[in-house]
């Protein structure tokens, strides 16, 4: 696993091993804030930023904890670091982009409990990635997450105008759309040397 090239990792995490559509990480914002592209895209970027920060800190933390033989504290340390990173992003967005802050609402602080962020930290530890691999994995994951969010949001914007049976409206429709998207992404399987 640890010998994957950076290019392979990047391609895998964006396409064939997409965080949302293949690994089911970060489902809450995926189902919750994909009403319109103008909200989905900034949230994707914010999450990408947090993912990269989390990945960097997780790599350093893992090294320090490994030196001190305190591996059982790993999970607690990761989650505390992620919560602080999210707090940072929240303050920055609130100060510089107030309208965006209002549009994202509860989903901005909820990045803390976004499995994609913690997922990156845990998977890179489990797969023994080195420093460059971790960063690539994080960037690829973030880009893949943003891509999935924007794709679903644009599909949902179109479906708004369609005449859908009443029983199918709401979550059912979103899940079906997500399923079709996921089916499409399966076409990338094998790209980048398999997940």
């Amino acid at each position: 696993m640890a010998r994957e090239s950076l290019w392979q990792i990047l391609l895998t995490t964006i396409l064939s091993g997409n965080f949302v559509l293949a690994m089911f990480l970060g489902m809450c914002p995926f189902l919750g804030v994909t009403h319109s592209v103008s909200v989905a895209f900034p949230l994707g970027l914010a999450t990408t930023f947090v993912i990269v920060i989390a990945s960097l800190s997780a790599y350093l933390l893992n090294w320090v904890l490994g030196l001190a033989h305190l591996e059982f504290l790993r999970l607690i340390c990761y989650i505390v670091v992620i919560a602080s990173a999210v707090q940072l992003v929240e303050m920055y967005v609130k100060k510089n982009y107030p309208p965006l802050f209002r549009a994202l609402g509860i989903y901005l602080p909820l990045i803390t409990t976004n499995c994609a962020v913690l997922g990156v930290a845990l998977f890179q530890t489990a797969r023994d990635y080195d420093f460059m691999q971790s960063i690539t994995f994080a960037i690829g994951g973030g880009v893949g997450f943003t891509l999935a969010l924007v794709l679903l949001a644009s599909v949902r914007e179109r479906v708004e105008l369609a005449d859908v049976p009443e029983s199918v409206q709401g979550t059912v429709l979103v899940l079906m759309l997500a399923g079709v998207l996921s089916l499409a992404f399966m076409g990338f399987a094998g790209l980048g040397g398999g997940a």
Binding site: L21, A22, M23, F24, S167, V168, G170, T171, V172, L175, M176, A178, G179, V180, S182, L183, M186
Partner: peptide, 21 residues
């Protein structure tokens, strides 16, 4: 395909659809 990722979305959507009907 049902044990692959898309299956998860479809089965979940199927159950929700059943309940909503």
């Amino acid at each position: 395909v049902m044990v692959l990722p898309p299956g998860g979305f479809f089965v979940m959507a199927g159950w929700l659809l059943l309940f909503s009907i």
